[in-house]
Structure formats: C-alpha cells, structure tokens
Design a protein around this nucleic acid. Structure first.
Lengths: 327, 327
DNA sequence: CACTATTTTGCACGCGCTTTCAAAAATAGC
DNA sequence: GCTATTTTTGAAAGCGCGTGCAAAATAGTG
C-alpha cells in the first residue's frame, strides 16, 4: 500500500541504506547515485516516513506549542508568528490548547509522549516542577511572557515595566492624576509585572492608583469592569488596562455612558494588537513586538538544542509607545 | 536515559508484551497484573512512546490542521474550537500555517510524511488532485468553508446563500435599493458563494448590485475599498461585505467621512466574530457557528476513519441573522 | 601494474512499540 | 483426578528508518 524505502531500493537496484542516505543531506553517497535514487523515489511518490525517522534519530522535528485562548487577538497573533517561524525552520508545531481547568503538567506530559524536541509555552503558570520535568526529558522549554525567577528556564518577555512607564509618563504629562488600573487574571505573570510597572511609575511622580479592579483580559470584561470603575464616582481621569482588549471594552463602556475619551478620561491598553487602531477610539497603547518575540523564542530553542549546557537566557524584547486618540 | 517498556517489564518482572498490553485498553491482561504493571510504570515515570506506537499501529493520533492567517478573528476562533475538539477526542493537532505563496500540495505532503491520520483544511483552494493524493495515502480530508463539487471529499460549510438572503431581505425591507458588494480575495470559495447569494437574493427583489469591489478580508482593506466605494458618488444606501473585518473597516471609512451609519448607508458583515458587536458601530451580520463547524468536521473525520468507504457528506451548518446597529 | 588511500556500498542491528502465535496457567466439567 | 476449555503470558517477528562496520569499488601514486 504505502511506499517504503525498500520499494524504492528495489526499483532503483540499490540497497535500502542507499535510499536512506540519498535523503540524508551530507551522507556518503555519490552524486550520481543520489540523483538516480531521488528520481526513482520521485516517480514512485516516495517520501521518508518522518515518524519512523523520529524513532531512530534523536529528533522528531515536533515542537509543542502551548497557548491559551487562541481567539484572543494577542495569542492568535503570537501563534501565527510562532507557527510561521517554526515551520520556516523545519520544525512542526504541535498545538496544545490550554483549557481553563487543564493542568500544564498533564498537557506537557502528553506532548513529551510524542517525543517533541522542545516546547514553547505561552500560557498558564509554569511551575518549577514542570520546567524540571521537561529538562529531565531532554526537551528544552522556552517560556513566552512569563519568567521563572532564579530558574534555569529560557524565556522571552516584553519589557512590561518600561511599557507602563511610558504610558504613565504620558498620562501624567497630560496632567492626569486620578488613574485607575484594570488588571487581568490574577495568576498571570504579565499582569503582575504590568501592574507593578504602573505603580512604580506612578510612585516616581509621587502618585498612587486611585482604584483598581480586575477583569479576565477579554473585551467583555473590559466593558463590565470598566463600567464599574466609571460608575464608582471616583472622578477618574485615566484608566490603564492590562491589555488592549480590555481597553477597547472600557472605551465602549465610556461611550455607553456618554463619557468623552480622552477629554474626560484617558484609556490605555497594552500589546497594540491589530484592531487597537480601529475601534470606536484608536487606542494609545504600547507595542508588544510579536514577531520579535516569536523569533527570539525560536532562537533560544535552537540554541539550547544545539548546546544543551548553555547558560539560561531571558530575552527582554523592547516596547514602543504608540500614541493614538484614547489618551 | 529515557525509560522504555523494557525497563518497566524488568522492574515488574513481566515481559515487555505485558507492559504494552497494560497500556492498551481492552487487551488480554488479568486485572491484577495490569494494575501491577501500571503501578510500576507510574513509579518509574514511564509513558508509552507515542511515536513508536504510531510506527506499528495504524494510528498516530496526529491530525493536520491547515488554516490561513491565524491572526484573522474568524480563523483564530475556528482554530481554537478545532484544537479543543481534537484534543478532547484524543487527537493531536499538527498546525500547518499556510503562507501566501505556499502550495497546499506541498504543505499536505509534508504533513503526510508525518503519518497524520487525517487532515482538516480551512484554507487555500483545494484542488481535486490534492484531495486524491490524501485519499491515496489513506488520510481522510475534511474541508471547512469550501466544497469541491461532485468530488468525494467531506466538507462542512455554513449556508452562505441563506445568510446573504437574510441580510439582503432585511436591507430591502428597510427600503435600501442601491447596494454595493465588497468581496474578498478572488479565489475563495466562501467569497464566491456569498457574492452569488447576494446577487440571487437581490434578483429575487428584482434588484442588482449597484457596484462591487474586492478587498482581502482584512480590516484595512475594508477601510481602503470601503472608502473608495463611498467616494465614488454612487449614492449608495447599503454596503454588504464578505466578512466582518471588512465591514468594520467600512464602518471606519464611513466615520472618517462623516457619513452616518446606518442612516445614510447600511453596512453588513458576515461571521459574527467576537468583536463585531463592539466596534464604533455594532455590526448587523450573520452568525457563522464556529463551534458547530468544528464539531461537525471532527465528526466527519471520525466517521470516515471508522468507515473509510462511507458516502461523502457535505454538512451545511445553519446561520442566523444578528441584527445590530449598522443596518 | 602493484599497492595504498579514499570513497562508495551493503549488511545487519537497533529505535520502542504492537501483535500474532503457540505455550503455559487457570478454570470448568464430569 | 483428569481432560476440555478458556484465559493469560512470553517469544519473536515486524513497523520504516538511521547508521556503524566491513567489504567492495574507485582513485591515487610511484
């Protein structure tokens, strides 16, 4: 039924080993024979079985990609770049969606059973235990958007603190003083860093948050919680959000109440997802460089695959202030 | 280094075959022995190597998922549901991003080399040739959002024609007569069906399109081409778009020109992506049931894996009119 | 041409697992 | 207690491929 290297070998009048070598760049074959074998393989429609190849060789080419809710713009965007970068480098992304109640440990265990060469995790909270388990299996782990302090796990993460400082400085320079924070899900690393960044930046101006609430990074929660903030009678003149989706939600909530953005209240996001520029009010936000992030993650993975013993590296990709109408 | 079934066998004092059977539901093992083996495996941290298993068994559990630009809301949404449905059923989605210039044939070839059990394709134009090649490899193909006429390929697709009839009827009932069409990329199946649907529905009211242009399904192209339509001096009172993203773009273009939506011109989308409700003007659109679509695709795949000889089936998932402010 | 240095080739083993087959153990039947 | 079944087990043969090793072929040298 399925054509194997044996079939090609017979048809080409060589041994099976020759077929294998013909398909292995840099193997010891005469150019003439390789060409011949390749031609025969072509006419037979043969392609090496990568599963079988993965069994012998140490590499399967499979990379586990763990990502949260793909339907969220930032995650989708990141996933697109990751998938592209991976397949461009000869890897195959094995997509592991992270359900709400799933444990990262189980998910990665399952991936390891597929002998993935490595894993890129951009979701969930990664415990040291998980990281260790991966290292034990010889599958390098690269984190995106979360950093395990003092741990030996490569990671790439944008400069959340810097981003928030940029935004705060801008708001303060505009004379805003009563600023609220709309955070995301509690256990999220980015959220923590971002909130910390805001507080530090405010402290730098001898200010503090007037209020704080948390949503779940969704546009809907932005509408809900943003509305709650606006209705609280706090005379806010700025609302800073942990991501763009929530910020767009807050813009919506303000519009529903006839509150003018940015005249009465400034609203800021984070990430600069496609779409941040197009809503009811173009968002002032911070660009989280997705492409760079994806490429850095791949570079880290590649480097560790090459040199397993190298020092752990945390790449901080830079952010830039994007000034639009909402602030 | 890595623990194999042999290690477990030795530790448990049984043969390797027993270990294999302990992990195979329904295999011939005494309950007592299975439990013992499983316990030993547990303490050793053993998990069957799914790659090796895939080599012997006929199934790898890998399903190729080909999708276009993931960063587009509809694709992201679909991918999320697909990934979720697949892994819930014990399959593992192998993500194959489709670059602009990549050929679906090559992409699928590569996937087939990984011995995928099947493929779900929601991007690109699928030629009969590609479908045949898949069938030849014994990997069932399920199409999403595109149908090969008279071909023996399972597919699931929303009822584009019905959706467009619903929208046209609504516009006409509002007294709109000068309606333009903003289509998507030319070679797309959905786009063709949708435009045809609009034209048929209009013809039903003895009307025809006043103008037509095409973008590329992106929000940006909606702004561009929508602006072009609005600037053409055609006295349009309705613009129907091939998807939500472009419709949101047209809303934006109208706002830039101070044209009132829906008073002066009605704008409609398609898909009802999350976000269609939240823009500058909540979109009147048609809901494309993503979850149903994903589940149907999985069901089709499962069914054919079970019964390779069954008759080809095209599932048309139903659509519903979502009435919001833009029309 | 003889002889060595260097490719090029084929054989055979192993990767980790499933699965047939026949032998062994357990169970039933009388 | 002994045979006829049935269940449980282990040995062994692959699955499709990579690769170390030694044999064969080729090239190089005097």
């Amino acid at each position: 039924m399925r054509i194997t290297a044996d079939d090609v070998a017979k048809a080409a009048g060589v041994s099976r080993a020759m077929v294998s070598r013909a398909f292995t760049p840099g193997a010891s074959v005469s150019a003439k024979k390789r060409e011949h074998v390749l031609a025969v393989a072509q006419t037979l429609g043969y392609r090496p079985n990568l599963i079988a190849r993965g069994l012998t060789g140490q590499r399967t080419g499979l990379i586990a990609v763990v990502v949260g809710e793909i339907s969220r713009p930032y995650e989708a965007w990141l996933l697109e770049h990751l998938a592209q970068a991976l397949s461009a480098h000869g890897y195959q992304p094995l997509l592991l969606p992270m359900f709400k109640d799933a444990s990262l440990t189980e998910i990665l265990d399952h991936a390891l059973a597929y002998q993935v060469d490595g894993a890129i995790v951009a979701a969930g909270s990664v415990s040291r235990e998980v990281a260790d388990r991966c290292r034990a299996s010889g599958a390098p782990l690269v984190l995106i958007g979360r950093v395990l302090e003092k741990s030996e796990t490569d990671a790439v993460c944008c400069d959340n603190s810097k981003g928030m400082h940029l935004l705060v400085d801008r708001l303060v320079r505009q004379g805003r003083r009563r600023i609220a924070w709309l955070g995301g899900t509690l256990d999220t690393f980015s959220d923590q860093e971002r909130q910390l960044g805001v507080e530090q930046a405010l402290a730098h101006h001898e200010l503090a948050l007037t209020a704080q609430l948390r949503g779940d990074f969704s546009l809907h929660s932005g509408v809900e919680e943003g509305g709650r903030l606006l209705d609280a009678g706090l005379a806010l003149d700025g609302i800073m959000c942990a991501n763009d989706a929530m910020a767009l939600g807050v813009v919506e909530a303000a519009a529903q109440r006839g509150i003018k953005v940015p005249d009465e209240v400034a609203i800021t996001g984070f990430d600069d997802v496609p779409g941040a520029a197009w809503g009811r009010c173009p968002l002032t936000t911070v660009r989280n460089p997705v492409r760079e992030t994806a490429l850095a993650a791949l570079r880290l993975l590649d480097a560790r695959l090459q040199t397993p013993g190298r020092a752990t590296q945390v790449v901080r990709v830079g952010v830039t202030l994007i000034e639009r109408a909402s602030a």
